[in-house]
Design a protein around this nucleic acid. Structure first.
Lengths: 334, 334
DNA sequence: CTGAAAGCGCTTACAG
DNA sequence: CTGAAAGCGCTTACAG
């Protein structure tokens, strides 16, 4: 079952393949009406479909971008990906998504594979551990956008939440509602990943701004599998917090598991705010107060920015850091 | 910033590019130790990365598959995609995902684009409306696997849930718990999509098997945006159902919205079972009984099947339909 | 207005 | 054990 090529069409239409190529690429400037019709006919008769691989090789572009997310389990990642795909498909770009699973080795492999496949650009939620690769892409002026996390001293365009403000919105809202003993639980800070670091520092700053001392036992950052345990410990302190901020959607799930297991009444025994929106926030009993990221907008902008870098490499904007405003959804858990 | 090619490596190592190619492809059978070292050195010095586009053109394979989901909003789609990606990455295949949004025109566009990009195979959640394309791929023996839905009289490998059994599990469980007035709400049946049709027919059959007459006012199939309204009507009947099955995860969300708005007590006023697992099922108040699909297994098997079709086109198995067992998770909403 | 020719960066049968 | 040559299916200056 040999696929029909441009040469076949040319033969069928009695023209050269140059002319067929012109036709396919809609460069009809000087093309005779009759020729056009013959080619159109031939294409229809033979059921010709152009081979983009050949075109890509010649044109040195693939109209494909790669997206490497750190951890696809976050709703935020899924939403950003969806926005990127929507935007790219509208602009006739394809998207290859990879999940690095927060593993620097996987990230390395995917960056190399995607570049070998000649993607025109890359959106990465960086693990932060492959500085040589990041720098190499920068040196080569390869179109690159980071999302969610930035790496110090690396002049890469980066799209991310104003994380400090996210925590501040949560803290301020709790304080307005009369809470002072406010805890926060996030995933591990060991790898110094932007959102976690900033959410904790924003939390501390907001407490300070409100004249509340930070109680370090109320601040816990551990891997997800240890989180329930740590939350239970925090709630068993002689003076447990009266409110708890979940650092992201996965942390919120752990908090809710503890709430269930220990039959804690929300918000009477414990107020809860989650950073990141979750699908069930307004269905839950009680409904859950969240600080949402404008994930769709962020994904769309990341894609837009990347396609600009690809199409107009000459006019790259100066700005590197793009911050997005978190949105507080006040519901009944706080 | 010219990328370095195989020719550059060959020159640097003082060999021909044939030899470099052999080296890259690990065909060292007759290669001198010294030559190997020189090439290895040259690659390192120049930072050579092979160009897969050129290789693909020559080899007529891209090691990439396409996945076209009907509607990416379903958790099931997301999970299947993730399983496909995991499996493919393990086997050095790449995945391009497209969301047809239940629009046959988009599906057509994506099938054509992905084939133009020379993907080696396709996993499709078919809209069912592009019979000519499906048949064309079949004629050309193009590697193709359907998921979630099958199309009558089309001999395509298809991976899907035993949907009738899913409904039956739900109905039987409700009947065991003493319910007889059981309703079901699904998305529209107009397009005759397998899961919806089968879930409704399984529901009816299960009622019959239990000697319960089907009450057609308890069976509603409409688009998501009309679902709340229809559920409210059903619950306002003179004799409303005492239990309700949600036909998929999106339907369950609508049911839960109504429950919230109308302050219905679950399961006292109304028992609920959802088909499809949801992230919050065991966190909810009450926890929600669901019938889950083995989504991860299904995605993995779909990918495995497709890669087999790609690698061993000669030995395609006879079997076309692969059914998967639904799993009843009994919780407190029923 | 259309065609011949070169070339994109690889792989592969074949020659030596 | 290694290399010269052809070719994958396109695009693109350039010639006429």
């Amino acid at each position: 079952m040999k696929r029909v090529t441009m040469q076949d069409v040319a033969t069928e239409a009695n023209v050269s393949k140059s002319t067929v190529s012109q036709y396919i690429n809609k460069r009809y400037d000087y093309m005779g009406e009759e020729t056009k019709n013959r080619i159109e006919q031939a294409i229809k008769v033979l059921g010709y479909q152009p081979n983009y691989v050949a075109r890509s090789l010649k044109q040195k572009k693939t109209s494909t971008i790669g997206v490497i997310v750190a951890n696809i389990l976050h709703t935020f990642s899924t939403q950003v990906i969806r926005a990127i795909e929507d935007y790219c498909h509208e602009h006739d770009f394809h998207v290859i998504v990879c999940n690095a699973d927060d593993d620097p080795e996987k990230e390395r492999k995917y960056i190399e594979m995607l570049r070998a496949k000649q993607v025109d650009g890359l959106i990465v939620f960086p693990t932060g551990e492959n500085l040589d690769l990041y720098n190499q892409m920068l040196d080569e002026k390869f179109p690159l956008v980071f999302a969610d996390r930035f790496i110090d001293h690396l002049p890469v365009k980066c799209i991310l939440l104003d994380n400090e403000k996210a925590s501040m919105l949560a803290v301020n809202h709790l304080i307005e509602n009369g809470y002072k003993d406010i805890g926060i639980v996030t995933t591990s800070l060991e790898r110094k990943l932007t959102p976690r670091i900033e959410r904790v520092s924003g939390y501390k700053e907001a407490l300070n701004n409100n004249g509340v001392d930070v109680n370090e036992t109320y601040v816990q950052s551990v891997e997800v599998h240890r989180m329930k345990e740590v939350i239970k410990e925090m709630l068993s302190l002689p003076e447990p917090p009266k409110a708890l901020i979940a650092g992201n959607d996965l942390a919120l799930m752990e908090v809710l598991k503890v709430v269930k297991e220990e039959q804690i009444s929300i918000p009477q025994d414990l107020a809860i705010i989650g950073i990141d929106e979750v699908s069930f926030a307004s269905l839950f009993n009680p409904t859950i107060t969240t600080v949402a990221q404008p994930a769709f907008e962020m994904g769309k902008d990341a894609a837009h920015l990347l396609l600009e870098l690809i199409k107009h490499p000459a006019q790259v904007p100066e700005r590197n850091i793009y911050r997005y405003e978190p949105i507080l959804h006040i519901r009944n858990s706080s």
